[in-house]
Design a protein around this nucleic acid. Structure first.
Length: 898
DNA sequence: CAGTGAGCGAGCTTCCGCTTGACTT
């Protein structure tokens, strides 16, 4: 007698294996095992050529889906089939959500078991929970499966009808979809707001006051009893004060005059207000909030966050990282509370256990919140984790522990000070009891809001006091356009609208960047010309599909299908077929849409036409005797193109390149040209009809075109520059400019190959010395983004071998986890968990195995990645001293109680 | 890398959501 249990992830399989009797075999399906064919080569020959083959859905036969097993899943399916042969019972234990239910159903279709089957669901991975779940199995819920299938078909219909329309009307290879097109539209809409934004300017006064030698600051709030205008009083589209606002707008002259008039006058405290407030800790992490916070606090991309979290999960440090639930298990709450008591003391404990409920739309809650794993939490220091993994675990640990901490109690203090007819205000904040702030402060997307939760001390004041004014500054402000989306804020918006799922947030961003809809500019997502063209078309002809409400309405229907309230077939028919159906709509639109118009982007202030062509965006303009076209450089976006640039691009095309000077030796002209990859330098003219291209050289990224001198151009054209020879090897050392920027290279001869190092920002490829090059070459290679792509991550590090000091680690292999010491590998015996292996035990196992080779030297430490602290500077100008205020992001306090 | 912005015209591009492959220790 044996039972085969199938779960979705191998890590989960490994864990629950330990909680089940020995005659239970646990295997993983690795997610879905079947899907619609994704591309032409997956379409079976028998349906190829039919009208509906490209969909993989037979729209003429009640939307019958054509399921195939993708190539990469064949191996998994075979393993599951083999495992099933030896079982006399099958338990399907995939996640309890729509996709999980569907995976179980597909497994049944593929495996065709002849033994009894059961559907089991569990929400906590503990021995009790799993044993209990095993006793309460059910059958597969066919209606939930239908809901999933409907979702799958609908997404396919949307994606595979709209995308071809874009190929015909705008450019080949483009894509549209229920999720990505809304995401792109969000970016485009924000960029339109930014383009329509008109800056407003206002001035105010800042006073530095003193009471009993304690200085504090106050801001001008009212004048003659009327509120002084600030940024929020402006209309973003005009740069003027919004209609209906009763405010005084101060110009620079007004502010300076007032400053003059108030100097030397008596300041009087008119009113003091104290208001107590309490603040509650943020809920524990979901995928979305983890990505947001890791982006804000650690500067990680959504992808990096997920990669790191996956590794922590596989090593048993955290619970599952793809979840939309903020639910904490009893076990987790108890563990967090015990952490609070031990590390911060009883007074910091929340009086009652705090449980959060999920608010986001369409949450399916198949898992717990993301938290430290286990029934007692390892502190970050105890884990022995390093770098990125440490920092992410630390973040998760703090956030989770903070949820069970007491509220923070604070007092807001507002002091009004009158001088003549001007009212000033000073705001203070007292933290009476920090509570959860001791462990965790949530980050913010707005750098100006980051000072929240910091104490602002005011001296003791009472009404009627006359504080002394030591300085009075007039400060100018400019209103700022709405900020671009970052990965974090886009994920936040998508999640709150119920668009996308935890497993897809990171890939949505990759998709829109890969398809050329957006570029990363620092932390900001900037939409491209293509994004403008595509969004324009979709909004005009398919407004419902790119509306943020489309997904929530679909989700509602899917829920109704799952509970039996709605029939899936009429829903799909109405969506796709008939007069109003998508199929007809696309056909009708296809004849209506003018392709030239669709690929043209109108931007305010730009007279030339901007179009999307086969090779990317280009400008087109009338020019006396015809039409001129010229490519727009790749990194230029609608946001930063201006009439001058358009003119330069076109002029260069018609009048030839700008001449920088003449080469002193050859007498050839040197030009600066603008290509699709940016500016470059060219020596001599291109020969008509000749295959030979003139010598060209790029301009380093951090150099502005205007700053390029003839001397610099000569230097760049002369690259690669030989610096000398290496004192040890005699190999040649050169400096040059490559596709990834400036570098130095050491030619170590035939045997050694070439050793490359990138230059640092402070180095100049034209002037770098041999000494500096040798210094760079002596340092270890930086590696890409700190990830060790080639070397495998250890599951656990046990310590060093007592004899040779070499590290002993546990890695994951195809036959389960194994212990590695130098070149000796030993499997962990069946039934023993990775966590349970001690160094002593490992030495035993290695000794038993080590009848063959002895280890050789192999040790290299990974390089450290540095994180820059972010800071923002206000745009303030002042008449007296430069009043630049710096606010730094608040980070979680790291203090420990003794 | 450093152009181009027709046509010929077969076959192809494309969606969203689940999940990690790999090696012969």
């Amino acid at each position: 007698m044996s039972t085969l249990v199938i779960v979705e992830s191998p890590t989960k399989a490994r864990t629950i294996r330990n909680y089940l009797p020995s005659d239970y075999r646990v295997e993983a399906s690795m997610g879905h095992v079947r899907d619609l064919p994704s591309s032409a080569d997956e379409i079976p020959p028998e349906v190829k050529g039919t009208k509906w083959a490209q969909f993989g859905v037979n729209v003429e036969a009640d939307f019958e889906p054509l399921y195939i097993i993708p190539k990469e899943k064949e191996k998994t399916v075979k393993q599951l089939k083999d495992a099933l042969k030896e079982a006399d019972e099958l338990v399907l234990a995939t996640d309890e959500d729509r996709e999980g239910e569907s995976i179980s159903w597909h497994l049944l279709q593929v495996l065709k078991p002849k033994v009894p089957i059961k559907r089991m669901v569990f929400h906590e991975i503990t021995k009790e929970a799993i044993r209990d779940a095993l006793k309460h199995c059910r059958t597969i819920d066919e209606q939930v499966v239908r809901a999933q299938e409907t979702r799958r078909i609908l997404d396919r219909l949307v994606g595979y009808t709209l995308s071809p329309l874009l190929w015909k009307k705008i450019a080949r290879g483009l894509s549209a979809g229920r999720v990505q097109s809304v995401a792109v539209r969000l970016l485009v809409n924000r960029e339109r707001q930014r383009l329509a934004f008109r800056q407003g300017t206002y001035w105010d006064l800042k006073a530095t006051l003193e009471k009993d030698k304690n200085p504090f600051e106050a801001r001008l709030i009212t004048l003659r009893g009327i509120k002084v205008a600030t940024g929020s009083d402006f209309d973003e589209s005009t740069g003027q004060i919004a209609a209906g606002r009763n405010v005084v707008l101060l110009s620079e002259a007004d502010a300076l005059a007032l400053q003059e008039r108030l100097t030397g006058k008596t300041w009087t405290v008119a009113n003091i207000e104290e208001r107590p407030i309490t603040r509650k800790p943020a809920p524990p992490f979901t995928t979305s909030t983890l990505q947001q916070e890791a982006n804000r606090k650690l500067g990680l991309s959504a992808k990096d966050t997920m990669r790191t979290a996956q590794s922590l999960y596989e090593q048993g440090y955290i619970t599952y990282m793809r979840t939309d639930s903020v639910h904490l298990s009893e076990q987790a709450i108890a563990a967090a509370r015990s952490c609070v008591e031990q590390m911060y003391g009883k007074e910091y404990l929340s009086p009652k256990a705090r449980q959060y409920s999920t608010k986001s739309k369409g949450a399916q809650e198949a898992h717990e919140a993301i938290r430290p794993a286990g029934s007692s939490f390892r502190t970050p220091q105890e884990t022995g984790l390093k770098d990125r993994e440490f920092r992410l675990y630390d973040l998760i640990w703090k956030r989770t522990v903070a949820t069970q901490m007491a509220d923070s109690r604070q007092t807001l203090i507002s002091v009004e000070i009158q001088v003549e007819d001007a009212g000033f205000r000073s705001s203070g904040k007292r933290i009476n009891f920090p509570g959860y702030l001791r462990a965790y402060v949530e980050g913010s997307d707005d750098p100006n809001a980051a000072i929240e939760d910091q104490e602002v001390i005011l001296p003791p004041l009472k009404v009627g006091d006359h504080p002394n004014c030591t300085e009075l500054e007039a400060i100018g402000h400019e209103t700022q356009p709405p900020a671009r989306y970052t990965e974090a804020s886009l994920v936040k918006t998508l999640e709150s609208e119920g668009i996308g799922r935890p497993s897809t947030y990171a890939s949505i961003i990759s998709t829109i960047v890969d398809r050329g809809y957006a570029q990363m500019n620092g932390n900001a997502l900037v939409p491209t010309f293509t994004a403008f063209a595509v969004t324009g078309l979709l909004e005009k002809y398919f407004p419902d599909l790119v509306d943020t409400g489309f997904t929530s309405r679909m989700e509602q229907t899917l829920d109704d299908i799952a509970t039996g309230g709605v029939d899936w077939l009429p829903y799909l028919r109405k969506f796709y077929q008939g007069e109003e159906g998508l199929e007809t709509q696309v056909k009708v639109r296809e004849s209506q849409i003018d392709a030239t118009e669709a690929r043209t982007i109108a931007l305010e202030g730009i007279d030339a036409k901007i179009r999307i062509g086969k090779f990317g965006p280009y400008v087109e303009a009338e020019n006396g005797d015809g039409v001129v076209t010229a490519s727009i450089p790749k990194d230029l976006t609608p946001a930063d193109i201006n009439p001058e640039q358009v003119e330069t691009i076109l002029r260069q095309k018609t009048e030839g390149p700008e001449k920088l000077g003449i080469h002193p030796e050859t007498g050839e002209p040197i030009y600066i040209l603008l290509g699709s990859y940016g500016h470059y330098i060219q020596l001599g003219d291109a020969q008509e009809g000749s295959k030979k291209k003139p010598k060209r050289a790029g301009i380093p990224k951090n150099t502005k075109v205007e700053d390029v001198t003839l001397e610099m151009a000569l230097g760049l054209l002369a690259l690669p520059r030989t610096l000398g020879v290496h004192p040890d090897t005699g190999g040649k050392i050169q400096a040059a400019l490559g596709p990834y920027g400036p570098y130095v290279v050491h030619d170590q001869g035939k045997e050694g190959g070439k050793d490359y190092r990138s230059l640092k920002a402070t180095d100049d490829v034209l002037t770098i010395t041999l000494e500096r090059a040798l210094e760079l070459l002596s340092q270890p290679k930086a590696g890409r983004g700190g990830s060790r792509s080639k070397t495998k991550e250890a599951l656990r590090e046990l310590g060093n071998h007592p004899e040779d000091g070499e590290p002993i680690n546990i890695y994951d292999g195809p036959y389960g986890p194994y212990i590695k010491h130098g070149k000796t590998n030993a499997s962990i015996p069946e039934g023993e968990s990775v966590e349970a292996v001690t160094l002593e035990k490992a030495l035993e196992l290695l000794a038993a195995k080590a009848s063959t080779a002895k280890s050789t030297k192999s040790s290299s430490k990974s390089s450290k990645s540095t994180t820059a602290k972010k800071s923002t500077t206000s745009k303030a100008k002042t008449t007296k001293t430069a009043a630049s205020k710096t606010t730094t992001k608040t980070t979680a306090t790291k203090k420990k109680t003794s």
